[in-house]
Amino acid sequence: MNKKRLTWVDVTKGFLMILVVIGHYPGQLDFPLVKYIYWFHMPAFFILSGLFFKPVVEKSLMKISIQKRFMQLIVPYLFFLVSITLIRYGIEIGSGNKDLSWYVNDMWTLVVGGRFVRGAYGVFWFVTTLFFTYLFFLWMTKNFNRTKQLIILAVFYSIAHFESLFAMHVIGGSPSEAAQTIPMIWNIDVALMAVVYFSLGYYLKSFWMNVSHKWLIAGVLVSISAVLLDNYNVIDYHLSMKFLRYDHFVLDLIIPLSFTVVLVGIFQLIAAKSSLNWLQKIEKHSLTIMYLHIFTDILLNDYFTYGVIGFTAFGLFVPIVVSIIIQKFLPHGKLLLGGFSQKKASSNRAVT
């Protein structure tokens, strides 16, 4: 991938990260913006992640590939999990909470993770799901041909929808409550749905690398039509990957794909004429922003009054500052933020 192509990917991911922050705004908005953000922002991340997937054929390289992804995803996950928890427990102890059972129950919830952790950990499910999505797709591409891969994906997609149907309509209640009645560590079951989006990024790589004007227009028309149909109550579409809410077997592909086509197409056009450095910088610190934007609001909302703009500004600025501090002042700071390179690791072993 050349530099221009990498630029539009970074810019698109930076914009999506802004949408992630806005999507967690706890207040009420006049326009159902959050609902529409959830239609596509998480699927888009999985699609763009699939763009960079490289199959591993040799058995000897499988362990190396998994280790790399573990260091890039799970090490930062554990770092932020422990860091936020220590601060939370410090606040709890300072406020007089000495109930040992509360801490034991809280720790157990953190171990299970996924949809069972809320509040400051509201986005942690994405990283563990992405890790297992990568493992699923790595296994598929190594052991099966393209036809069998598509069959497996169809089975995964169907199982995911059956699970959603069971949670939303048999168990019932709010999506978060219904989903939490189905036990699963680290939201591994969500990877059944995520791997389908991930595969679309990989299989359609040539399409995504240069979205034509024709497809961009088609994506705009489908996206606008979906919003209008929803606004006039012709459809009532929702998508929440975290809480297993997949509302429609067909629309769960069409709507996220159409919005992603629009975003990618637009930012490819813009990136060809402008660098949009500010979005690239947001993407550069996206991991820290993802982990800390909700926690930032939890720490600050007692001292500041702000709407969605203030929430978004704090949710971006504070984590970026923290990210810079971690990288510059903490030992192995870049590694803690996912900056692991197999080449660097190999060269370090060679030196020692």
Rank of each mutant, 00 (worst) to 15 (best):
V56A: 04
H293W: 03
K344N: 15
K214E: 09
A271N: 05
I22N: 05
F144S: 04
S199K: 02
V20N: 02
V264M: 15
M193Q: 05
H332Y: 15
G339P: 00
I87E: 02
F329E: 00
Y232G: 13
N97W: 10
I93L: 10
V190N: 01
S83H: 03
A345S: 11
V34C: 02
S286C: 07
L292S: 04
F259Q: 09
S49F: 08
V9I: 13
P331A: 12
F304N: 02
V261C: 03
K98H: 11
D30I: 09
K344M: 13
G201K: 05
V82I: 11
S258I: 03
G90A: 06
A154R: 06
L337M: 15
H24C: 00
P256Q: 14
K68Q: 12
V234Y: 13
Y157S: 12
G315R: 01
V264S: 10
V196N: 11
L110M: 07
L19N: 06
F311H: 15
I188K: 07
F126R: 12
I22H: 03
M1F: 06
S60F: 09
S158R: 08
I91P: 01
I84A: 01
P183M: 07
I298R: 07
S240T: 08
H293A: 12
M62Q: 06
L299D: 03
I93S: 04
L257K: 04
T312P: 00
S341Y: 02
T129R: 11
G339E: 08
G310H: 01
L73Y: 00
F304V: 07
I47C: 02
V112F: 06
G90Q: 08
T128P: 15
T129I: 08
H24A: 06
V222W: 05
K343N: 09
K142Y: 08
K3F: 04
F46E: 05
R245T: 00
L61S: 11
L299Y: 06
Q149M: 15
G113I: 10
F207P: 08
F207K: 12
L153V: 07
T85Q: 06
L330F: 14
V82Y: 00
L229R: 04
N233C: 07
I325Q: 01
G172Y: 12
M184Y: 07
Y121I: 09
F249G: 00
K281S: 11
L51W: 03
L135G: 01
M184C: 15
I188H: 11
N97A: 14
H332P: 01
T288F: 00
I185V: 06
Q327T: 13
Q327G: 10
F295E: 03
I270R: 13
S341H: 05
W215L: 03
A160K: 10
W186V: 05
T352P: 02
I255V: 14
L6Y: 04
L51I: 11
V195L: 06
L228V: 07
S346E: 14
D302M: 10
